[in-house]
Amino acid sequence: MTLATAILLTVITAATPLLIAAIGELVVERSGVLNLGVEGMMIMGAASGVAVAIITGSSTLGVLAAIGAGVALAAIFALLTLALAANQYASGLALTIFGVGLSGVVGAPFVGVQREGIGRITIPFLSDIPVIGPVLFRQDLFVYASVALVIGVSWFLWRTKSGLILRACGENPVSAHALGYRVLRIRLYAVLFGGACAGLAGAYLSLVLTPFWTSGMTAGRGWIALAIVVFASWLPFRAMLGAYLFGGLIILQLHAQTAGVAIPSQFLAALPYLLTIVALTLIMAARRGTGAGSVAPAGLGQPFTPDR
């Protein structure tokens, strides 16, 4: 395995959980809901996934449990922000704090328990292509799933009526309601989908990347996922680009630390957020004066209460 292949492989593994969580949050935000609880849902996914996998001995059940945990937390968020029209920012932050705390309890009995990670799938012949072969065709299911997610979500949002309706709810919930769409129900589905994605991303951390539980193991990846959505200006393929870029930065940070490069690791850790700000600034500069307004869904973060 060449050095280039090795680096690409590590970047992909670092980027995949970011991508899965970001694509879920992207759908949520396109429906007009801002869920800052990604970190909390992700770490609950990681803890539940590893716990169930160790108890049952089945990685599949572990993954399902992780998705279930993400959905469960998202359901709490939906109850607060959709049914009770609570403030989305506060509820999301609370969800993260809650998830991080609860994951410590769930994961406590399993600290230090090692298990076999979910392996990679090798596609015959294709994986023998030099450099890109192992990168593209010797990966775990999650990596393929994440790419499928990007394509699927992009197709859904821009090629289907349901996707159009979802974007309409994010753009102008009042008008969507006036047309007869059930804004809250559509937003609920989006929020639950986001939770499932965050849970799945968490499972990747605790079942593939580092196949054991340590508390706080998401280490801010949920926040990076949120930043990616903004960086990507709410577009799925740009989110993919952002995830790989930020995944690369995480790897760079690790290597710089071990190689003793004189860049403070804190600076590299802050870099994704800095890049997000730069990207946003550039996008807005390009759109300035066109009258197009912000790239964000116009109804993002607005609670909606139908008047019946």
């Binding site: 309706i165 753009e171 047309l179 307004g293 116009a298």
Partner: peptide, 16 residues
């Protein structure tokens, strides 16, 4: 108006 500013005319019509 119950229109969606960021969307095209056709999308606005399609939604209805």
């Amino acid at each position: 108006f119950s229109l969606f500013d960021a969307m095209t005319v056709a999308e606005n019509v399609g939604l209805a």
